Simulated assay, not measured.
Amino acid sequence: MNISKDMNPKSYEKPRILTKASDKCIFRICDGRGQIHQENKPGDDYMVICQCRKYKQQLRKIKSAGIPTDYTDKTMNDFKIDMYETDYSVRLAKYAKQAVTGYLDRYQEFEDMGKGFYFYSQTKGSGKSLLSMIIANELIKRYELNALYISVVNMLTELKNKMNQSNSKVGVYDLIESFKKADLLILDDLGVEKATEWSEEILTQILDDRMNYRRPTIITSNVSVEGLERKYPAGRIKSRIEKLTFPLRLPEESVRETLSKQDNEKMAQMLFN
């Protein structure tokens, strides 16, 4: 039966949401299942994807990247220039923040070049790891890429453990391939590990593959680029890192130590005031 124009149900000015909002949805739009039941007019209803589903997918990607829980929600706003004390440290931090911001804004161009960063500073807690994981978080959110974060010490330990297993060849190959093929690889604390002929060979394999296929790599280290030749005497690590990354020196100040002192002062006030 045809319905005359005058008898058509009235359309809503905006789609009417039929789904009952719940606290299970971080945006309080859907019921937590990631879909919104909407209606243009009676009898014309449909489902749309809620923002919370994409948010959950991003969180899963961040967690699967191996990023520690304390860093999974970090953004550029968390890299605070005023945490550094000396003028020189502030200048270094400003330069690093400007460089990282520019990198994120033009990432697709740098991705085509296969370029990342080499953050270095002899001081622990200076912001190297924080900046590297901010980059990972932002790129996962913007481009939904597959990132992988691991400290060099843990990477080598995992490989050694795989080698001691019965199916070692398969396990070691798969693990090395995951480091080679990740859209973005973050190698934390390069230079802390005990350098051996074997460890240098493993690092060379991974860096060489990433260099050849232009896959961006972020590296943090307590060793300057010039000092890499002394740390890795075979000489193959330095040249690959120079090709893969743009070096950025971080201040020789421990922001982590400053933040820890602030936390303790806050806790003391809560306990005794």
Results as ranks from 00 to 15, higher is better:
Arg256Thr: 05
Asn264Pro: 00
Pro247Tyr: 00
Arg249Leu: 01
Ile237Asp: 10
Ser239Trp: 13
Pro251His: 00
Arg236Phe: 10
Leu244Ala: 11
Lys261Ala: 13
Val255Asn: 02
Arg236Ser: 12
Asp263Phe: 12
Leu259Ala: 14
Thr245Asn: 05
Asp263Trp: 10
Lys261Val: 08
Lys261Arg: 15
Glu253Leu: 03
Ile241Gly: 09
Pro247Ile: 06
Lys238Val: 14
Glu265Met: 06
Val255Trp: 01
Gly235Ser: 15
Phe246Met: 15
Ser254Leu: 01
Leu250Asp: 05
Asn264Asp: 11
Ile241Ser: 11
Asp263Ser: 09
Val255Ala: 15
Thr258Phe: 10
Leu259Arg: 15
Lys261His: 14
Arg249Thr: 01
Glu265Cys: 01
Leu259Gly: 05
Arg256Ala: 05
Pro247Phe: 05
Pro247Trp: 11
Arg249Trp: 02
Asp263Pro: 00
Leu250Val: 01
Leu259Cys: 10
Glu242Thr: 12
Lys266Pro: 03
Glu252Gly: 02
Ser239Val: 15
Val255Gln: 06
Asp263Ile: 07
Leu244Lys: 02
Leu244Arg: 04
Thr245Met: 07
Leu248Gly: 01
Pro251Asn: 03
Asn264Cys: 05
Ile237Asn: 06
Arg236Thr: 13
Ser254Trp: 02
Met267Trp: 08
Glu257Leu: 03
Phe246Leu: 15
Glu265Gln: 03
Lys238Arg: 15
Asn264Lys: 15
Leu244Asn: 08
Ala234Gly: 15
Glu252His: 02
Ser239Asp: 12
Ile237Arg: 09
Pro247Gln: 11
Ser239Ala: 07
Leu250Phe: 09
Arg249Val: 03
Ser260Tyr: 05
Met267Val: 08
Asp263Gln: 14
Thr245Pro: 07
Gln262Pro: 01
Lys266Met: 09
Thr258Glu: 08
Arg236Leu: 12
Lys238Ser: 04
Arg240Glu: 11
Leu248Cys: 10
Thr258Pro: 00
Leu244Trp: 13
Glu257Gln: 06
Gln262Phe: 11
Leu248Ser: 01
